[in-house]
Design a protein around this nucleic acid. Structure first.
Lengths: 290, 290
DNA sequence: CGATCGTTTGACGGTGCTCAATCACCGTGG
DNA sequence: CCACGGTGATTGAGCACCGTCAAACGATCG
């Protein structure tokens, strides 16, 4: 059992300078019935889930510990049960690029499915726990449980959806819009798991957010303040409350340059400055005088 | 047979204003042996691929035609055989957000796996063809061909990897860096499929690139010009040639942040902060010949 | 309580968004 | 054949946004 600690866990220590202090990876040898995992992924509990007696290793990861090491090969695919992770990539110059934040139900180390090395590292942002699915036994498990097989597909499909959401976040031109989208995204995630979509506890630093959104961390801080000034948000360090969900959602739109304070949100604001429209209709015939 | 046109295809016409002209979706009833698909996804040809007599519907999509309609439910999962698609999402205000460009071997409409509506539309950027995998028969096929089952997992895993690459593209703070990464990304894709990684033919407009990268399309154009001035690129409309791969790769690094210290590409204008500065007329690269 | 890190705010300068104008390219129709 | 729109690409001018540097404050933990 203890050999389960495997490469990714063992390599965690002493490689990135995390080693000391209480950043410890605790691969609790506890296991959980497969049905627990299935329920986490959305299966109905009533559905007589015959888990074929299979039990899934359950790992605990303390805040700050690395679950995955960039470049290493993982022998497991993980599904987050509780907690939050940040997925990162370290550039040659040492810059830590955040690529995603992963929460309950998300798949980590999917690269292990086709035996490729991990494309990103993963660090716990709070005390967390993950289901550890040994790749070597995945096929066997899938054959023993049709439901598990299906759940795995659903999990991958959803993970792709989430990756697309990340793209949407970052494609906004204005930094305010990016942050607004990020907050709404996090809010929706909270709602998905039955928590309040208005009172949020961000588990990551401003710098992490900034890295993900591709802006300076001071800009993130300033955008927060802007929203507070507009009465959309209440911010206390990493604890934020959405005061005006409609107004915040309006900030989600890809507009640029409505910084002239005037909070005319609420209804109209039909003014969508200069948005690139589809071909047709709206184009004013440019007088092609020459 | 013709019922294969299904929701996504049928709904294509007359919904978005594309209807008229030669934007036609041609669901050629042609089929291809399963082994062709497996080989596309990386299976060795020798491996006695017993395709169990299964044959995969092959669809042809003309340039400009929509393969997927945002919000519709697709009855198929698609794998791109030839050509290029852009994946888009239309905002309420009509802004067309490009979320990805998909080429050979990429999976489209994965949402169909769990019966959810398409989160994005997909439009062919050139005459293309796709394998159309009917979701209803997927399980059956997977049971009939272990290899196909595995390939499907690999395909999804790779698709997740590509989605992560998109995130990396867009996470850069400087627009020059974003474009440089985009070019390198496209170059690598060409190399993967055995085409020249230096002479590239972009299938998408500047506006599409800008939308994906989250910048103004004029900025994309300007960044192209900057690279040309630096002698890194030769640009002729959508046909570009990488003259200095090493230099371009250097532009790929996220030079902003708390950098100074290390490296800094030795070539142009020793300025260590921004690379837009090009004090001296450096190399006048030859090769205007075509 | 002192050290370290995260957060916030100010000032300044540069990047890049907006608004334009111009040119090239096309398919259409006179 | 060349005018006539229409679209895409490039470039310029102006200025707002935001990245950088800096300083102050708060939080956390030993």
């Amino acid at each position: 059992m203890s050999h389960e600690i495997s490469v990714s866990a063992g390599a965690t220590f002493g490689v990135n300078g995390w080693s000391n202090e209480r950043c410890s990876l605790m691969p609790m040898t506890a296991t959980s019935p497969l049905s627990d995992l299935l329920m986490l992924m959305g299966c109905e509990p009533d559905a007589a889930v015959h888990d074929a007696g299979l039990s899934v290793p359950l790992w605990q990861v303390r805040s700050g510990a690395a679950l995955l090491l960039e470049g290493a090969c993982s022998s497991h695919v993980y599904v987050v049960r509780t907690g939050t992770f940040k997925c990162i990539k370290i550039a040659e110059d040492g810059y830590e690029q955040v690529l995603a934040f992963a929460g309950q139900g998300e798949v980590l180390a999917f690269e292990a499915l086709c035996g490729e090395p991990q494309r990103m590292g993963a660090v716990a942002l709070e005390d967390s726990s993950v289901y550890a699915l040994p790749v070597r036994e995945l096929d066997s498990w899938r054959r023993q449980s049709r439901r598990f097989d299906h759940v795995l597909h659903v999990a991958l499909s959803r993970q792709l959806t989430r990756a697309g959401q990340m793209t949407e976040l970052m494609a906004a031109v204005s930094s305010d819009v990016r942050l607004a989208r990020f907050i709404m995204w996090w809010s929706n995630r909270m709602a998905e798991r039955g928590q309040s979509p208005r009172r949020l506890l961000l588990r990551m630093s401003r710098r992490d957010i900034a890295s993900l959104l591709g802006v300076a961390h001071e800009t993130v801080s300033r955008s927060f303040s802007t929203f507070v000034d507009q009465g959309l948000l209440r911010v206390d360090n990493r604890e934020i409350e959405i005061l005006d969900p409609v107004g915040l959602k309006a900030c989600t739109r890809n507009t640029r340059g409505f910084s002239d304070d005037t909070l005319q949100r609420g209804s109209p604001a039909g003014r969508s400055g200069t948005l690139r429209q589809r071909a047709g209709a709206d184009q004013t015939p440019t007088a092609l005088a020459h």
